[in-house]
C-alpha cells in the first residue's frame, strides 16, 4: 500500500533577481516497508525535496499525497499529519536542548495529546531498543553525535508514523557511529516494515536500500544497482 507520494513537484527560489529552479518534475512513490535512498550532488535539491515531502516546505507545482490524501504544508491539518504520519530526522539532529533524551523522544506523543507518563513509557522502550537505555536522562549536550542522532531517530519513530524521512542522518558521523545508525534503520525496516526515505551521500549504504534514486536537474531517476554496481552515476 502506498504511504507517501509526490508527483511532478517543482520548486524555484527567487533570490535577489536570481532564480534557482531546484525541482522541475520530481516524482516519487513510497509503499509500506520500502527503504528508499536518494542521492545526488550537493546543492541539487535533495533536502528541498525531503522538506516538501515532510510538509515542512511549500512547492510551486505538483501534488503530495500522504496515505492517498492530498496535503500541503500550509493546510490546517498539516501539523496533525506531521505529528502522526511522518517522522523527520534532520541532518543536524535538532534536539530540544532543555529536555532530556527521554523527554525529547516523548515530545511527539505529548503533542498528540498523550499523557507524559504513557509517552515516557514508550520513549524508554524505544531508547532501549536503540541501545540508549542508560542515556535516557541525559541532556543533548551530554550525548555524542551518534547518540543524539539515534535519539532523533527514536523521536521520529515514537508515533509509529507511516513514513520516516531522514536527511543525511549519518552525514556528520564517523564510520562506526554511522554504521550503528544504518543498522538500526535496516533492522526497523526489516522487523517492523517501517518505510524510510533517506537522503545520503554514502553510496555503499544506499545499496542496502530497496530502491535508490538519483536527483539531478530537478528530476528523480531510478538507479538500477545491478546495472550500475558502483553507484556512480553517468549522465
Amino acid at each position: 500500500m502506498q504511504c507517501l507520494a509526490g508527483y511532478s513537484l517543482s520548486k524555484r527560489y527567487i533570490d535577489s533577481d536570481q532564480q534557482i529552479q531546484v525541482l522541475t518534475d520530481a516524482t516519487l512513490e513510497v509503499n509500506e516497508s520500502d527503504l528508499i535512498c536518494i542521492t545526488g550532488q550537493s546543492g541539487c535539491g535533495k533536502s528541498t525535496l525531503l522538506h516538501i515531502l515532510g510538509l515542512l516546505d511549500s512547492y510551486d507545482f505538483g501534488r503530495v499525497l500522504v496515505r492517498g490524501k492530498e496535503i500541503s504544508s500550509s493546510m490546517a491539518d498539516a501539523p496533525k499529519i506531521r505529528n502522526s504520519e511522518i517522522g523527520f530526522v534532520f541532518q543536524f539532529h535538532y534536539l530540544v536542548e532543555d529536555l532530556t533524551a527521554k523527554e525529547n523522544v516523548a515530545l511527539p506523543m505529548i503533542i498528540a495529546g498523550q499523557s507524559s507518563s504513557i509517552a515516557y513509557r514508550h520513549a524508554i522502550d524505544l531508547l532501549s531498543k536503540l541501545g540508549l537505555s542508560d542515556r535516557q536522562n541525559r541532556y543533548p549536550n551530554q550525548l555524542s553525535g551518534g547518540e543524539q542522532q539515534r535519539v532523533s531517530l527514536a523521536r521520529a519513530l515514537i508515533n509509529s508514523p507511516a513514513i520516516v524521512l531522514a536527511d543525511e542522518p549519518t552525514g556528520n558521523l564517523d564510520p562506526k557511529h554511522s554504521a550503528e545508525v544504518w543498522d538500526m534503520i535496516l533492522k526497523l525496516n526489516r522487523e517492523r516494515g517501517q518505510a524510510f526515505v533517506i537522503v545520503t551521500h554514502d553510496h555503499k549504504s544506499a545499496k542496502l536500500a530497496s530502491l535508490t534514486y538519483n536527483l539531478a536537474d530537478g528530476k528523480l531517476n531510478l538507479i538500477d544497482h545491478d546495472t550500475n554496481p558502483s553507484g556512480v552515476i553517468s549522465s
Partner: peptide
C-alpha cells in the same frame, strides 16, 4: 529558533 522549528516539525500548532 531551532526549538520552535522542531516543535512545529513534530506537529505542535503555532498557538501551542
Amino acid at each position: 529558533k531551532n526549538e520552535i522549528a522542531v516543535l512545529k516539525t513534530l506537529g505542535a500548532k503555532p498557538k501551542e
